[in-house]
Design a protein around this nucleic acid. Structure first.
Lengths: 165, 165
DNA sequence: AGTGAAAACCGTAGCGT
DNA sequence: ACGCTACGGTTTTCACT
């Protein structure tokens, strides 16, 4: 990497306001954004471009209603790997990355455990996925599933309160 | 609710293509989007508006690099509630919803357990947060924390493969 | 439904402060 | 570094097929 990955010191309150605004609505016009943060259009636009170039903003994504598109089941799955280090685990990571049903996967400990977030149309489809796909992946010892019974909070907007708060 | 929440039957391949495109880049111009899905600009625009109005698209969000903005720690926290039903749990939900450090929270079982995703600047800040805030919430029995040691897959794009795939 | 054109708006660059 | 102005392109609407 060319620069420090954890240097957020060069963000002023306008940068922070832009990040907050674009996190809640990425499709507002630059004019609208400028007005909301209290700057005129040109410098606002320059700052947005700068935030993109520096890698603070990594992309813009539409958020979909998972139930409307037929994904009734969201599950948190802990996958225990047989061996926790080496090429076997790397291979397992690569396999997991390929699965569209897995929307997130984190390596969470030294004991070879992954935490996955899995989407499926219904319980039946999830069942088939875990038996036919997950449990057949190389180096998988076993899995523990917890289903989401309700979303108390979602939408994953990152807190910015620690910046100049 | 006014209409069926799980009816994705009125989506044709253009709708699906639009959802896929906007999930990967929500800021592309309508002209670009139209060209990619193989339709001209006006009908593409109407379809996008329709998807927004029907609630398939719930919003557009900028994705930020959590490390660049100083959030070095991501943790998965299981919160066990004292009593699993009634107003005490509802109150706990409301408290959790208020915390900016908690970016996601799901109710995951009948035993009064929540799965949280928590962001913090560093281990020290996380430690303070769990001791001073999480453990002091009403109706919390105990918590189990797993730290993310690496993101194998992230970015939470929903699979659309089950639609007319 | 999709097409094509027209008007309003916005993004973008350059210059002045 | 911010703000203003002006141009070129895009979004967005509307009338027509």
């Amino acid at each position: 990497m060319t620069s420090d990955a954890t240097s957020s010191g060069d963000l002023d309150r306008y940068h922070i306001a832009i990040l907050a605004e674009l996190q809640s609505d990425a499709r507002q016009s630059n004019a609208e954004l400028a007005q909301r943060i209290g700057l005129s259009a040109a410098p606002t636009w320059r700052r947005v471009k700068w935030l993109e170039e520096q890698g603070y903003i990594t992309g813009y994504r539409a958020e979909l209603d998972r139930r409307k598109i037929g994904l009734g089941v969201l599950a948190f799955v802990r996958v225990d790997a047989e061996r926790s280090a080496g090429s076997a685990t790397k291979a397992l990571e690569d396999e997991i990355r390929q699965l569209p049903e897995v929307i997130a996967c984190h390596y969470i400990s030294g004991t070879g455990t992954f935490e996955l977030q899995v989407m499926a149309t219904d319980l039946d489809a999830f069942s088939r996925f875990s038996i036919n796909t997950l449990l057949k992946l190389p180096n998988v010892k076993d899995i523990h599933t917890s289903f989401s019974l309700g979303e108390v909070k979602a939408g994953g907007a990152l807190p910015l309160t620690h910046l100049q708060g």
